[in-house]
Simulated scan of single mutants.
Amino acid sequence: MTSSRRHDWYRHTGRHGAWAIPNWLEVREHYDAVHVTVVGYLTTAGLAIEIGDGVATVLAGWSPDATAWLTDVLPKSGPDEHWRRDSAMVRGHDHGWRRV
């Protein structure tokens, strides 16, 4: 990762050295999602985070209270259903939606 982000991350952090980003394919084998809390964002945004062996990373491209879903975690609960909205049939709470 060093050559593709070194200049940008140095400019924002002032850190010289090797950089890394997560291997998201490997992360998804162990986790369904990654969530950045507001506190986590506010305490790390814009900082070089040392991860060991002289390598660091940056919390880049995230927003506070953001979740990145890495897998499809909701199994199908039954057969597919098809619905159609007929604006001529709008009344009450169903807004004209009917199963077809």
Score class of each variant (00 low, 15 high):
Met1His: 07
Thr2Gln: 12
Thr2Asn: 10
Thr2His: 07
Ser4Pro: 04
Arg5Tyr: 05
Tyr10Ile: 00
Arg11Met: 02
Arg11Lys: 15
Arg11Val: 12
His12Asp: 09
Thr13Ile: 05
Gly14Asp: 07
Arg15Leu: 08
His16Arg: 12
Gly17Tyr: 00
Gly17Asn: 11
Ala18Leu: 09
Ala18Glu: 11
Ala20Phe: 02
Ile21Pro: 06
Pro22Met: 03
Pro22Thr: 10
Asn23Ser: 11
Asn23Leu: 06
Leu25His: 12
Glu26Lys: 03
Glu26Met: 12
Val27Asp: 00
Val27Gly: 00
Glu29Lys: 13
His30Ala: 11
His30Met: 03
Asp32Thr: 08
Asp32Tyr: 09
Asp32Trp: 11
Ala33Thr: 05
His35Cys: 13
His35Val: 09
Val36Gln: 01
Thr37Cys: 03
Gly40Lys: 03
Gly40Gln: 01
Tyr41Cys: 02
Tyr41Ala: 00
Leu42Ile: 14
Thr44His: 07
Thr44Arg: 09
Ala45Val: 09
Gly46Asp: 09
Leu47Thr: 03
Leu47His: 06
Glu50Phe: 07
Ile51Tyr: 11
Ile51Ser: 07
Ile51Arg: 04
Ile51Ala: 10
Ile51Met: 05
Asp53Leu: 10
Gly54Arg: 07
Thr57Lys: 02
Thr57Phe: 06
Thr57Asp: 06
Thr57Gln: 05
Thr57His: 08
Val58Asn: 00
Leu59Arg: 00
Leu59Val: 04
Leu59Ser: 06
Leu59Phe: 04
Ala60Met: 14
Gly61Gln: 04
Trp62Thr: 00
Trp62Asp: 01
Ser63Pro: 00
Ala66Leu: 05
Thr67Ser: 07
Thr67Gln: 06
Ala68Glu: 07
Trp69Pro: 00
Leu70Ile: 04
Pro75Leu: 09
Lys76Ala: 14
Gly78Met: 05
Asp80Ala: 08
Glu81Tyr: 08
Glu81Lys: 12
Glu81Val: 15
His82Asn: 11
His82Lys: 14
Trp83Leu: 08
Trp83Ile: 01
Arg84Ser: 10
Arg84Asn: 08
Arg85Ala: 11
Asp86Gln: 15
Ser87Glu: 05
Ala88His: 09
Met89Tyr: 01
Met89Gly: 14
Val90Gln: 10
Val90Gly: 11
Val90Lys: 11
Val90Cys: 14
Gly92Phe: 08
His93Ser: 13
Asp94Glu: 12
His95Val: 11
Gly96Glu: 05
Gly96Ala: 08
Gly96Val: 10
Trp97Cys: 01
Arg99Trp: 04
